[in-house]
Design a protein around this nucleic acid. Structure first.
Length: 791
DNA sequence: GCGGGCCGCGTTTTT
DNA sequence: CGCGGCCCGC
């Protein structure tokens, strides 16, 4: 059971003060590494200890990952279940599930993602007879989104549109809303806007929810936009028990509508608000903190905050200068290999950059040196085309009015239903006041559609057959949908024919596992809940700091994470601060500075900030100059090294320099070898438990083995190449064309097939159906790992 | 209806 | 340089 001493143990005075604050508005300004999550979880526990029922507590986060983490940690503290812990969007969806009809939202509504939205806007433009050339759909969409963030619906936007372009956008907005409503669909912004309207227009609901949620907590408050601010306010207006946590210095989503003033003005907005500052940093060395603090002091839009730490000073922050992005990448890869040889785990390192485009060079360098890595970007699982297709079938099943879903799948896999057919359908369905699916179904009843009926019939039959089976267990249903829609077969055929490096059939099969897992974790939940969840999952949720690999990520993706070693690359004018932000004036630059601050403060022990004098960008070499931010970092905390520049000192010309030169030659060798099918790769020692420790991860090089890598480590013994998987043991080395080499963790029977759970050092853990994927036992010599995009 | 090829474009992206 | 969208030809 909960005990006060336990809840307060190990807390510093301000942390303790924050945890024990119960009544009234509270702002916790939490600097980086100040134990914020700890305070939030303990505070929630303390509320319960003081007599608040868990079900009367609402905690709002920004990512699913943060919500899951908070839920888990609160439970570990011994707090009984019952508190609502959600992202803003999931909360909105849940409230609309309950009160939706009051604001015109019907049960079973679909949530449209950006692709769906874009399609809808294009349709709306067409309806308004506007050309996409003069009225770029993404601009229109941005206006609509911005309007919704300001709590304006189509009518509200029209009312305040006082110039010609905005009046046009207002027409598009109105049409867009009409299409959404016809599909019984909501976009992401609606998940916030509608609940805000609900609470505004229905005081009884507002009162009931204030009564239900006696205590409201909002995390990452610096990143709230206007609707979120309004929603937080509405939900706590009557009791005033709103506790927000955040750090204005880490507000990095202004470009997306986040309003830093929400946190800066909290005290003015919520009278008698208590403000508690968490300023002691437990994460970073004193040198790192000092450097970051010096940088952020150049911002004007801040809240007073004095960061300090009791941590040792540590090494100075390193600034590394390079001639090219290539030598930058290779030097970093080499440094990681050298550190790894000393016993650092691969997952101790992160490489951060402002734009995704910078990741390629780094990937190449890491691959060349046999370093396993993971990228936070990339098409996340639910973003993959084939998965979205499968999900669209499910959406259509739940919401037959979901026209966007229908358009996605009506000819996927191909059924000979093409542009003309679809156009005719789309033109007539609204006239007949039918959803597209109903129009398909009843095509033979209408003269204009009758010629199409024969072609449409098989598709309609698929949907009708599936609709009759929705009572089977979730995973079974998902499996049937994939199977009976013909998706499974089409993807299998595709795989067998053109042996591409991505196993899309395995990806949709994985959706079945995801459904099974969901059903297990959420007993009683059905397809509707599963879909709601999948619609709200983002890339962020795929970052796994524990994976046995170096993590590559954008600065935006880095927030909330920490790593013993951080490399911040490409810190050059035009890149960080980014040129597009420079044109936004001072506010733009301040946000870029905060971004840099976020990156720096992810580092625990070692921080390397690098820049190159020239960089290959968009096929052309660009001359780059160092970022102004480098000058703003306290010189006393920094050591600068010029790696291949002309003006370097003799002291700088150490062995690492030679390493670079040699590695340049190596790269060329590797390049030609790759072309001949002997590319580099890595292999995993046979103990998956320790797959991430460098001593077990053996870089396999085609060049001589004295390259400074962990080459002294034991080599994996060559596995027997031709044994059926029945005798595959944990630790067996397997190869997958997409994920590379991994170690088997376990086998599980799935019907009459077998699932292999495999830990890939690059990608992390995956479960794959052996029969349906080309998972092979590693044979020597290994084939080149399918290159992601080598030339 | 579908695939090949060409053209244009290219921050960041919690949901 | 690489991707995605779009157009055109089969």
């Amino acid at each position: 059971m909960l005990r006060l001493e336990e809840i307060l143990s190990g807390l510093n005075p301000p942390q303790r003060e924050a945890v024990t604050h119960v009544e009234g508005p509270l702002l916790i300004v939490a600097g980086p590494g100040s134990g914020k999550t700890r305070v939030v979880t303990r505070r929630l526990a303390h509320l319960v200890l003081s007599g608040v029922a868990p079900r009367n507590i609402l905690a709002i986060t920004f990512t699913n990952k943060a919500a899951d983490e908070l839920r888990r940690r609160v439970m570990e503290l011994g707090v009984p279940r019952g508190a609502w812990v959600h992202t803003f969007h999931a909360l909105g969806a849940r409230l609309l599930g309950e009160f939706g009809p009051l604001v015109g939202v019907q049960p079973g509504f679909s949530i449209y993602d950006e692709a769906d939205q874009l399609k809808l806007v294009k349709d709306a433009l067409e309806q308004c007879s506007l050309s996409e050339a003069s009225w770029p759909p993404n601009v229109a969409l941005a206006r609509i989104s911005a309007a919704k963030n300001r709590l304006l619906d189509a009518a509200g936007f029209a009312a305040q549109a006082n110039d010609a372009p905005n009046r046009t956008y207002a027409r598009v907005f109105k049409e867009y809303e009409k299409l959404l409503q016809r599909a019984n669909a909501l976009d992401f912004d609606d998940l916030l806007l509608r609940p805000a309207q609900l609470l505004r227009d229905h005081p009884d609901v507002a009162a009931a929810l204030n009564d239900r949620f006696r205590h409201v907590m909002v995390d990452e408050y610096q990143d709230t936009n206007h609707v979120q601010y309004v929603l937080a306010r509405q939900l706590s207006q009557q009791h005033g028990n709103l506790c927000v946590t955040g750090d204005p210095d880490q507000s990095i989503y202004g470009w997306r509508g986040a309003d830093i003033r929400n946190i800066l003005d909290f005290e003015a907005d919520f009278r008698a608000a208590r403000v508690i500052r968490l300023e002691q940093n437990y994460r970073s060395s004193a040198a790192i903190l000092e450097a970051a603090d010096a940088l952020i002091h150049h911002n004007r839009a801040r809240k007073r905050k004095t960061l300090w730490t009791e941590n040792p000073r540590g090494e100075p922050v390193n600034i590394w200068r390079f001639d090219t992005g290539f030598s930058e990448a290779d030097r970093i890869a080499a440094a990681i290999v050298r550190e790894a040889a000393q016993g650092r785990r691969w997952s101790d390192f992160a490489i951060m950059y402002r734009v995704n485009a910078l990741s390629r060079t780094l990937e190449d360098a890491l691959r060349n040196r046999g370093v396993p890595y993971r990228i936070a970007r990339g098409v996340a699982f639910y973003g993959r085309k084939e998965v979205k297709d499968a999900v669209a079938y499910l959406r259509l099943l739940v919401n037959p009015a979901d026209d966007a879903a229908l358009l996605r799948v009506i000819n996927t896999p191909t059924r000979g239903i093409g542009k003309t057919t679809i156009e005719r359908l789309a033109r007539l369905a609204p006239v007949l006041r039918l959803s597209l699916l109903d129009a398909c179904r009843r095509a033979s009843e209408f003269e204009e559609l009758r010629p199409l009926a024969a072609k449409l019939a098989p598709f309609v039959r698929v949907m009708d057959d599936l609709a009759r089976e929705t009572s089977v267990p979730l995973a079974t249903l998902v499996d049937r949908v994939i199977d009976q829609s013909g998706l499974a077969e089409a993807l299998r055929k595709e795989r067998d024919q053109d042996a591409q490096d991505e196993d899309r059939a395995a990806n949709v099969a994985e959706l079945v596992s995801a459904a099974a897992r969901f059903a297990e974790e959420h007993p009683g939940a059905g397809l509707v809940e599963f879909l709601q969840r999948t619609s709200l999952i983002g890339d962020q949720d795929t970052i796994d700091p524990e994976a046995g690999a170096v993590q590559l990520l954008t600065l935006h993706a880095a927030k909330g994470l920490e790593f013993p070693w951080v490399f911040l690359v490409g810190v050059e004018r035009g890149l960080l601060p980014h040129e597009r932000a420079l044109s936004d004036g001072k506010d733009g630059v301040e946000e870029e500075r905060r971004l840099c601050f976020v990156g720096m403060t992810r580092a625990m022990q070692h921080l390397v900030i690098s820049h190159a004098r020239q960089r290959l960008f968009r096929g052309a070499t660009q001359v780059q100059s160092p970022s102004q931010f480098l000058r703003e970092i306290d010189a006393a905390a920094v050591v600068t090294s010029d790696y291949d520049g002309a003006g370097e000192s003799a002291a700088e010309r150490d062995s690492s320099d030679h390493r670079i030169q040699r590695s340049e030659a190596d790269r060329r060798i590797q390049h030609s070898e790759k072309a001949r099918g002997h590319g580099s790769g890595w292999r995993v020692e046979t103990d998956p438990e320790h797959a991430e420790t460098p001593s077990r991860l053996v870089a396999r090089r085609s060049r001589p083995a004295d390259q400074g890598g962990p080459s002294s480590a034991k080599r994996a013994s060559e596995p027997n190449p031709t044994t059926p998987y029945a005798d595959w043991k944990p630790g067996t080395l397997l190869e997958h064309p997409r994920f590379g080499v991994g170690a088997l963790i376990r086998l599980e029977p799935v019907g009459n097939e077998t699932r292999a759970v495999v830990k890939f050092a690059g990608t992390g853990e995956k479960s794959l159906i052996i029969e349906r994927t080309s998972l092979t036992r590693l044979a020597a010599p290994r084939k080149p790992r399918a290159p992601r995009r080598d030339r």
